[in-house]
Nucleic acid binder design. Structure first.
Lengths: 356, 356
DNA sequence: GGGAAGTTTTACAGCGCTGTAGCGTCGGCC
DNA sequence: GGCCGACGCTACAGCGCTGTAAAACTTCCC
């Protein structure tokens, strides 16, 4: 099977002939360029309408060298956090004049590598990548021939990069839990074996927050999940509880882990939040579906998307300077899962934003 | 700010000069075309490597008229069902030789309209659209100058179209609930005011299923949600329960409504599944996070994505025939939320697939 | 040794658009 | 009145690749 030949479309030259002007004048009208008299503009516009002309974007691209497209490379587009991020990027991109090409890296270093490498050549003007496997060193070492902006925690100093202040956010979680009377707070995360993992700064904030409060090491507890699933999280906490772990709060590396924690606690007969408070991370919509509704660290995803687009746009427009590292605001959304006992009611926003 | 000029890249002609052959021969080597002697192939490949040549996709597109890209137009990419669908499309598209451009229609008829209209001109080879606002009539009346395949329930006969057999699936839900001893089954859906809404066939299946069983109209109950949110669903069922509605099962138009139903039932003091069974629709991952875990109608999303891609690919390759309407398999995944009392344990798959 | 038949390679004209250079024309100003 | 600059528009050469037609080269056979 071969594709059929391109059906005869109306071209710029056809409009020009119909209006009795040069191609360039038509082009100027299409682009609202100056130096076109109103009369001429009207005449050309009429021809455009009559002929139903629509510019061929590919040809324009070849001529200008710009594609007006961006690649958005995310690990898994069906994970709520990434899906929400994608939505914000898709919504904001048109404002910067771009369309979004989706790329899925599926938690694979090779795919992340490929997303940066210009297999893209001539397809997109720039790349938005959220790496989870490549380390900052690896990213820094890669030849980059397209503007690149990184999302998440893994970024070499030389690259543009947008994230929230994870350490501050984690400390705010600790503060909130302690304010609510919690004393034995566990951290539920992943093995911190890769610099690219967001667990590290969050765990750091956990420790710093507890340090400030003078909490002894004995009252701390870091639990490790085998992977990023609800099941792994449930298993990790269940095992710890069965082993006699005594806690009155769990702070989780992400919402999915918090969901797993809720399950483990339910199964172990602990009440949430009366016996144990639970706080998640990312404030994804499905986490609000849980019962009790989940408290969570909420990155300003809209701001994240816009900041990343702005940085990328500037690069595409020729900015050649040093890597910029932008912190976008976040807040801690307190819901039922970490409410002090007897303090029911709706969500309370404790804003703890930061800027960089 | 203006973009910098294109940095000097290696072009086909450069490789040709370096290898001392014609451009076309280089092109043939790049494309693995026949009629190139092994010696010549080796020589050209060496030049390609030495120069680091990478073809310019835009130029190729202009020359061939094909872009190798598809638009995937979905209402909201952060809704779990659409996010999961997007993931499957993104994963399968490369096998058909396409990349995926994301388009978000945000529940707006205008945006759906725009997705079909070729503002796209020259950007994509075809369009995958899941309409929720445009009616089949409206879609049928639209001028289509690009191959189009529709997902979901809203499709005119003339267009290619992929979905599951909603009526059969709904009947299977009824059968399952009745088998589990349920007698008063409510349907939780939306106002059926638009043909484009998926509620209609599901509601039809609900009635047909109950008709077969001779269930009197008095034992049926159709609840209407104001919009697609968990809150609207919770409110609708809560109100009905407060008004004295007596039911032992709820079948929901989608998982979000089922989550809302779980909340309403919990709030009203009804146990799930002991007092009331709940079944959702779409089998999205977050629904498996609920407690109790949600039974749900699971469309084979992978098959859905592949079937749609296949139809679209055939259109792009020149198929001109009548609209094809493909039914992909689905199954009912039974989990705790609709388990017969005392019948705990893991999920059981009741397969009820259909083909068309 | 001369063609026929087939294979390999080349030359070049597009694909549809934009950027640049340049040509008239007009008005303003010394 | 003549010159200059600004304006409005045109002509045309690319952008980098592919498809076609034809040339060049082999091979094979009589």
């Amino acid at each position: 099977m071969r594709p059929p030949g391109p059906q005869a479309r109306v071209r710029l030259v056809d409009v020009a002939a119909h209006a009795g002007v040069s191609m360039k004048t038509v082009s100027n009208v299409v682009h609202d360029n100056p130096h076109v008299s109103p009369a001429m503009r009207a005449r050309v516009e009429r021809s455009i309408d009559e002929l139903g002309y629509r510019p061929n974007l590919t040809a324009r691209r070849l001529a200008t060298g710009r594609t007006g497209m961006l690649a958005l490379a995310l690990p898994e587009m069906d994970q709520p956090y990434y899906a929400e991020l994608a939505r914000h990027v898709a919504e904001a991109a048109p404002e910067f004049g771009y369309r979004v090409l989706m790329e899925q890296t599926l938690l694979s270093a090779d795919d992340e590598h490929a997303a940066i490498g210009s297999s893209q050549n001539g397809v997109v003007d720039g790349i938005l990548l959220h790496p989870v496997r490549l380390t900052p060193e690896e990213i820094g070492a890669l030849p980059r021939d397209l503007p690149l902006v990184l999302l998440g925690e893994s970024a070499p100093p030389a690259a543009d990069h947008v994230m929230i202040d994870n350490v501050a956010a984690a400390r705010a979680v600790i503060q909130h839990l302690v304010d609510a009377g919690r004393r034995r707070i566990a951290f539920l995360g992943t093995v911190v074996d890769q610099l690219s993992d967001a667990t590290a700064p969050r765990l750091q904030g956990y420790h710093e927050g507890l340090d400030d409060l003078g909490t002894p090491q004995a009252d701390r507890c870091v639990l490790v999940c085998a992977d990023y699933s609800v099941e792994a999280s449930e298993a990790a906490l269940s095992r710890a509880l069965a082993d006699g772990l005594q806690i009155d709060a769990v702070m989780c590396r992400e919402d999915r882990f918090a969901v797993g924690a809720l399950r483990a606690l339910l199964r172990a007969g602990r009440r949430v939040p009366e016996d144990v408070a639970v706080v998640g991370w990312d404030d994804t919509e499905p986490a609000r579906w849980s019962h009790p509704q989940l408290s969570s660290v909420a990155p300003d995803k809209r701001a994240l998307a816009r900041a990343a687009l702005r940085l990328l746009h500037e690069r595409i427009m020729g900015y050649q300077g040093a890597g910029r590292h932008v912190l976008v605001p976040h807040r801690l959304v307190v819901r039922a899962s970490s409410q002090p006992a007897g303090d029911g009611g709706d969500a309370v926003d404790r804003r703890t934003s930061s800027r960089g």
